[in-house]
Amino acid sequence: MNILETRGLTHDFEGLKVITGVDLQVAEGERHAIIGPNGAGKTTLFNLITGTYTPKGGKVIFKNKDVTGARPHQMVRLGMGRSFQITSTFSRLTAFQNIRMAVLSKRGIRFNIFRFVDKMDDVTRETDEILKRINLDGERNIPASGLSYGKSRSLEISMALATDPEVVMLDEPTAGMSVDETHYAVGLIQRLTEGKTMVIIEHDMDVVFSLADRITVLHHGEILASGAPGEIRKNPKVKEAYLGEMEI
């Protein structure tokens, strides 16, 4: 069953078409990678699905519900998590506080002005568990802006996951990482997304083939091909689109 679908999704920026009639299908539990050359519209597609923009045409179906035009916070509450290509954490808050923000949201604690947040022991415990799992317990009280690049990327990804979403959307989680960091991040993502549906934008083909069990290729805002990694690797149209742009 498809947990996430787009039907004829279309978007333009002041007439400039960036997404044209995209029919994306993501089955429950699937690890779905979206690849494509620069400017193919991958991040825009993410922005349309997660509520950053309202699509100009077409539909987004999430868990059999039409969620076209839903705002980001509504998508999160429906069970979708998202990380960003450019790290977007709360820079002056500590690693602990960053994760706790997501834990509070997951527990539906929003307008609570009647209790000390530091004394919510179950929240603290859950946050600390997450920090331990992502190997950030040593940096618990360091502000996000003071973390190393690799650690802050881990934090970025983990915040998307800490709301315990059914579908996680990761926008180039390994962007700018060294080989070692990438290796570590792939392991982390595998561990954390176990049992969840994952959609990932990725440039690094090693990462794509080690993580994904289905790949959609986006080119000039349209879906060029979609299928298992083996099929995509052999697809002549994909090779043509990437020719001279990327090794596959």
Binding site: T50, H73, V76, A102, R110
Partner: peptide, 13 residues
Amino acid sequence: RDNADRIDYVGFK
């Protein structure tokens, strides 16, 4: 204060 955009993606309005 730190990142109003991200607040949305954590699930707060």
